[in-house]
Amino acid sequence: MSERTENAPSAPSAPSARGRPRDAGRDRALLEATLAVLYEKGYGGLTTAAVAKRAGVSTATLYRRWRSKEDLVIGTAAQWARDLGPGEDTGTLEGDLAALLRDKAETLDGPGGRLLHVLIGESAHNRTLARVLDTAVVQPVRDRAADVVRRAVARGDIAPLDDAHVLADLVVGAMVSRVFLTPGPPAPPAGADGPAGAAAPADTARTGAAMTTELLPFLLRALGARSG
């Protein structure tokens, strides 16, 4: 019974219309625990029992909310997408782009980045999670980037584009490549100067601020921004 519950794909379960209202704090604890277990063990190593234990609840409590680990990951992705929020209109293309890049960099550095890393690897052979990756993770970025482009066109900052979503492809592709595919700094060799067990130096080229600084002028040129 537990094996079927862990592995069988199913649609996200709807909240029950009867009984006590769901505890939003407990829901959030379960979603955060899901991210933590995904980060440590990957999708293949994630179990509902491990998530429930990490969240400090019973598996029965988890199953009242989500029927399987796939449902749980889908719910986590949906919550993360809601947390993204809309972009602000700064009044300039450069300001809007800087805000978009900054927000995406912060997301990749946090729980959303851990979730994205897992979904990218798993979606190659799980069509349900591939749809989640597109709907809950990629599309919100595409929609926000398209808004940036439309505002810039309306202000006369750039000429109209055939596809306003092309900006998102540039942003997502560049940032995912930098964060997930570019090797980080090597660990310090044994006996190197510094305290024993010291962490490797921070890779400043991979920080959100560095990525924003590097990508912003490139994106402005790519979009054909008109100088003032």
Results as ranks from 00 to 15, higher is better:
residue 28 R to S: 13
residue 58 S to E: 12
residue 16 S to M: 06
residue 55 A to Y: 11
residue 18 R to F: 07
residue 57 V to R: 14
residue 9 P to I: 01
residue 47 T to C: 00
residue 36 A to K: 10
residue 43 Y to S: 05
residue 17 A to C: 10
residue 7 N to R: 05
residue 64 R to W: 03
residue 23 D to K: 04
residue 15 P to G: 05
residue 19 G to V: 07
residue 32 E to R: 09
residue 18 R to V: 09
residue 29 A to G: 10
residue 33 A to I: 10
residue 39 Y to N: 11
residue 36 A to S: 11
residue 30 L to E: 10
residue 66 W to C: 00
residue 9 P to K: 00
residue 27 D to L: 04
residue 11 A to R: 02
residue 58 S to V: 08
residue 51 V to P: 05
residue 42 G to M: 15
residue 55 A to T: 13
residue 31 L to Q: 06
residue 63 Y to V: 02
residue 51 V to A: 11
residue 16 S to I: 03
residue 58 S to A: 15
residue 56 G to M: 10
residue 35 L to N: 08
residue 15 P to D: 07
residue 50 A to H: 09
residue 5 T to G: 00
residue 36 A to I: 06
residue 44 G to T: 07
residue 13 S to L: 03
residue 46 L to A: 14
residue 57 V to W: 05
residue 55 A to H: 06
residue 53 K to F: 12
residue 32 E to D: 10
residue 16 S to V: 04
residue 24 A to D: 06
residue 17 A to H: 13
residue 29 A to Y: 08
residue 24 A to I: 02
residue 27 D to M: 08
residue 23 D to H: 06
residue 52 A to R: 08
residue 23 D to Y: 02
residue 14 A to H: 07
residue 65 R to G: 01
residue 55 A to M: 15
residue 48 T to K: 08
residue 66 W to S: 01
residue 34 T to G: 12
residue 59 T to M: 07
residue 31 L to D: 06
residue 54 R to E: 15
residue 42 G to V: 10
residue 66 W to V: 00
residue 39 Y to R: 06
residue 47 T to M: 02
residue 18 R to T: 09
residue 64 R to N: 09
residue 35 L to F: 11
residue 47 T to Y: 02
residue 25 G to Q: 09
residue 5 T to M: 01
residue 48 T to Q: 15
residue 13 S to N: 02
residue 7 N to T: 04
residue 22 R to E: 03
residue 63 Y to E: 04
residue 10 S to G: 02
residue 47 T to A: 02
residue 14 A to M: 05
residue 60 A to H: 15
residue 61 T to S: 12
residue 55 A to G: 12
residue 66 W to D: 01
residue 66 W to G: 00
residue 58 S to K: 15
residue 54 R to A: 11
residue 22 R to A: 05
residue 47 T to L: 01
residue 38 L to P: 11
residue 52 A to F: 07
residue 30 L to Y: 14
residue 25 G to F: 05
residue 59 T to V: 10
residue 66 W to A: 01
residue 32 E to G: 11
residue 12 P to T: 00
residue 6 E to S: 00
residue 33 A to Q: 12
residue 20 R to P: 05
residue 14 A to V: 04
residue 22 R to D: 03
residue 10 S to M: 00
residue 31 L to I: 13
residue 7 N to D: 04
residue 9 P to C: 01
residue 36 A to G: 15
residue 40 E to S: 14
residue 59 T to N: 07
residue 51 V to R: 08
residue 32 E to Q: 15
